[in-house]
């Protein structure tokens, strides 16, 4: 297993594309968060906008890059035929997928921590000046903010693993990216258009993206369809399901 991990690490390290993806994950997330934080205002009369969610808006864009990092981590090997070399070196296919997942998770976790940390710091420094104070009822609650930030980092990592699972199953980076991003963005759109509030709520509960929103909210948790950790659990189930499907396909099919 250690050999598999170090092999995967060597491959990722030597691929400039991977580094570019991680850098754009951080840059795009922080940029979108910064624009949103800059535009957010809370009037003195009070507002029920969630300062945690505002600070973490960048995650909505960052997740697209995280998913892309996940899908290209394996599908690029199929594109070039490299996968046959890899499987000759590491014939145990479950071990290969586990090594890929570990290396990917570690890298995305680090990049996400950087992105989320910078976004939260921006929010903490800027939002009180825009009226988000305890007096207006939208103060920055430190404990909840830190939980929200932690959940966002784990969420981005799980999205990358979801992408890896889908890509292992369909073996094409393009199609896998389309499916993963479709899963992420389609549920909230469907929920927002559903006429029946009960249907909308169920869609929000099973959606990999809505679930993540819950875990990011710093205030007003009781109105959300799922608690923060349950929300993260839903994403973890999606990622686990995708990885399981990928593992089965990888085991059964010829490369």
């Amino acid at each position: 297993m250690r050999r598999a991990i170090s092999a995967e690490w060597a491959k990722t390290r030597s691929d400039p594309g991977a580094a570019r993806l991680l850098i754009s994950l951080v840059a795009l997330s922080v940029a979108l968060s910064a624009v949103t934080i800059g535009a957010a205002r809370c009037p003195a009369a009070g507002c029920d906008q969630d300062p945690g969610r505002i600070s973490l808006t960048g995650v909505y864009l960052g997740q697209a890059v995280a998913a892309l990092a996940g899908t290209t981590a394996i599908a690029a090997e199929y594109g070039t035929g490299m996968i046959r070399v890899t499987l000759t070196a590491i014939p145990h296919r479950g071990r290969l997928l586990a090594a890929k997942a570990l290396v990917l998770a570690a890298l995305v976790l680090a990049a996400s921590a950087l992105a989320v940390g910078a976004s939260m710091l921006d929010g903490l420094l800027t939002l009180p000046g825009h009226g988000f104070t305890a007096a207006s009822g939208s103060g920055l609650v430190s404990g909840a903010m830190w939980r929200a930030a932690g959940c966002a980092v784990l969420y981005l990592t799980l999205v990358a693993l979801l992408g890896l699972g889908v890509a292992t199953a369909v073996r094409d980076a393009l199609v896998a990216t389309g499916i993963t991003l479709g899963l992420l963005y389609l549920f909230p759109v469907a929920a927002s258009l559903a006429g029946d509030p009960a249907v909308a709520r169920h869609l929000e509960q099973i959606s990999p993206m809505y679930a993540s929103l819950d875990s990011q909210s710093a205030t007003g948790l009781s109105a959300l369809p799922l608690s923060p950790w349950q929300g993260l659990g839903v994403v973890a189930l999606w990622a686990a399901g995708a990885l399981l499907a990928g593992w089965l396909v990888l085991r059964v099919r010829d490369a």
Binding site: Y60, P188, L193
Partner: peptide, 26 residues
């Protein structure tokens, strides 16, 4: 292909989701 799909979705779907579907931005 993958980067192109992510770019198109990032340009069209993400702004739509942020502004219309789950209006999280001001």
């Amino acid at each position: 292909g993958a980067a192109a799909v992510a770019a198109v979705i990032g340009l069209i779907a993400v702004p739509y989701v942020l502004a219309v579907a789950i209006p999280v931005v001001p």
